[in-house]
Simulated assay, not measured.
Amino acid sequence: MTDDADARRLAWVYLSRVVEGPCPALSALIDRIGVTEAARAVRECDLPESLRSATELRRGTDCAERDLDLVARLGGRALTPDDVEWPSWRMLALGQLDATRDRSAAVPLVLWVRGPLSLPDATEQALAVVGARCSSGYGEQVAADIAGDLAGQGWTIVSGAAFGIDGTAHRAALAAGGTTVAVLGCGVDRPYPAQHERLLAEIAEYGLVVSEYPPGTTAHKHHFLARNRLIAALSDGVLVVEAGMRSGARNTVKWARRLGRPALAVPGPVTSAASVGCHRMIREGEALLVTRAEEVVDETGPLRLAVPDRAVAADETPDGDEGLVYAALPQVGSRLPAHLAADSGLPLATVRAALPALELAGLVGSDPSGWFRLTRTERLVR
Rank of each mutant, 00 (worst) to 15 (best):
E284K: 06
P116T: 05
R258G: 08
A226L: 05
R382C: 11
A126F: 04
V13E: 08
T180R: 09
N228K: 01
A274R: 14
P22H: 14
V210Q: 01
A39N: 11
L57N: 05
E299A: 12
A151C: 03
R103Y: 06
A41M: 03
M1C: 10
L305V: 15
R73N: 13
A93V: 04
A7M: 07
A28I: 02
N251V: 13
L360E: 12
T123H: 07
G139I: 02
A28M: 06
S135D: 12
Y213G: 02
T291W: 05
I203W: 03
A232K: 03
L200M: 12
C45Y: 08
N251H: 15
G365C: 05
V351K: 06
P215I: 03
A274T: 15
A306S: 15
T55A: 14
R280V: 12
D149N: 13
L200D: 06
S369C: 00
P22W: 06
G370D: 11
E197S: 10
R58T: 03
G244Y: 10
A144D: 15
Q195L: 06
I157Y: 04
G301W: 01
A126S: 14
A7Q: 09
P269W: 05
W12I: 07
A243N: 05
E322I: 10
Q125V: 14
G178D: 14
G260A: 02
V364N: 02
G178M: 15
D102Y: 12
Q125E: 10
G75S: 06
R376V: 09
V13K: 04
I33V: 15
E212F: 02
A361L: 06
C278N: 15
D31K: 15
P116S: 07
V35T: 09
A232D: 05
R292E: 15
K221P: 00
P318A: 03
S366D: 12
E299K: 03
V364Q: 02
V297R: 13
L336I: 10
T156Q: 03
I30L: 05
T217R: 02
T217Y: 09
V241D: 02
E284C: 00
T168W: 12
L346A: 01
R114V: 11
D98N: 15
F163H: 08
Y206E: 12
A361R: 13
S118C: 08
I157G: 07
V297A: 13
A54S: 15
E197F: 03
L150W: 06
A64F: 02
R304Y: 09
R335D: 08
P347S: 08
G362S: 04
L374A: 04
A151K: 00
C23D: 08
R198V: 11
H196S: 11
G365V: 04
R17Q: 13
D83A: 10
P120D: 11
G152K: 03
S104G: 15
H170G: 07
S366N: 12
T180W: 10
A338H: 13
V130H: 04
L358Q: 09
V351C: 03
V364A: 10
S334H: 11
R133K: 04
Q141T: 14
V296L: 04
R43D: 06
V325Q: 01
S118I: 05
L127K: 00
V84H: 12
